[in-house]
C-alpha cells in the first residue's frame, strides 16, 4: 500500500516534469523565433533608413533557416517557413507550432517601416539573406521557401 502511494506520487512528478520540459522548451524557442523576426525587421528598417545603395547581409550565423524550420531537434525552433512579410500591413509574421498546444500554429507580428518591399532569389553578388535598398524598393534576396513577400 505504502509502495503504491510512493509509486503514484513519483509517476505524477514524472508527468509534471515532462510538462515542465515541454513548456520551458516551447517558451524558449518561441522567444528565439520572435528574435529571428526582430533581427529581420531591424535589418529592413536600417536599410530603409540609410537610403539608396545600402545593404545588410544576414548570414547563416545570424539566420539559419534549417534550424529555424526544424521541428524535431532540440536546437530547432519549429518556425513555419516561409516567414511572411506582409507589404500592405507592413509586418513580418512569424509562426511556429507549439508542442504544448497540440502542434497548433501560433503567430506573432513585428512591424516594419517600409511599404515597398520585394523578394528576389539570392545571387552571387547578393547571397541569402541580403536586404538591399535600390532607391525604390527594399529588396530581400532570399529563397522563396524561407522568406516570402505577400500583399
Amino acid at each position: 500500500m505504502i509502495m503504491g502511494i510512493v509509486i503514484i506520487v513519483l509517476i505524477s512528478f514524472t508527468n509534471l516534469n515532462w510538462a515542465s520540459y515541454y513548456t520551458a522548451r516551447d517558451i524558449g524557442e518561441t522567444g528565439e523565433a520572435r528574435m529571428l523576426g526582430e533581427l529581420l525587421a531591424t535589418a529592413i528598417n536600417n536599410v530603409y533608413a540609410n537610403g539608396e545603395g545600402y545593404s545588410i547581409q544576414l548570414g547563416e550565423d545570424k539566420i539559419n533557416f534549417t534550424e529555424a524550420g526544424n521541428r524535431t531537434s532540440t536546437t530547432g525552433l519549429a518556425v513555419s517557413l516561409p516567414i511572411i512579410i506582409d507589404r500592405d500591413d507592413q509586418t513580418i509574421n512569424i509562426s511556429r507550432r507549439l508542442r504544448t498546444s497540440n502542434d497548433s500554429n501560433w503567430t506573432t507580428t513585428i512591424r516594419i517601416i517600409p511599404e515597398n518591399i520585394t523578394r528576389k532569389d539570392p545571387t552571387s553578388e547578393y547571397p541569402e539573406v541580403t536586404v538591399f535598398n535600390n532607391g525604390s524598393y527594399i529588396i530581400i534576396y532570399a529563397d522563396a521557401a524561407n522568406i516570402d513577400v505577400t500583399t
Binding site: L16, A19, S20, T23, D26, I27, T30, G31, R34, T91, N93, I94, R96, L98, T100, S101, S104, N105, W106, T107, T108, T109, I110
Partner: peptide, 22 residues
C-alpha cells in the same frame, strides 16, 4: 505552469488568431 506559459506567449505577441501587440 500553463497559465505562466500562456502569459509568456501572449507577452511575446503570439496567439493562435494571428499576431498581437507585445
Amino acid at each position: 505552469e500553463g497559465a505562466t506559459a500562456g502569459a509568456a506567449l501572449r507577452g511575446m505577441g503570439f496567439s493562435t488568431t494571428g499576431g498581437n501587440e507585445m
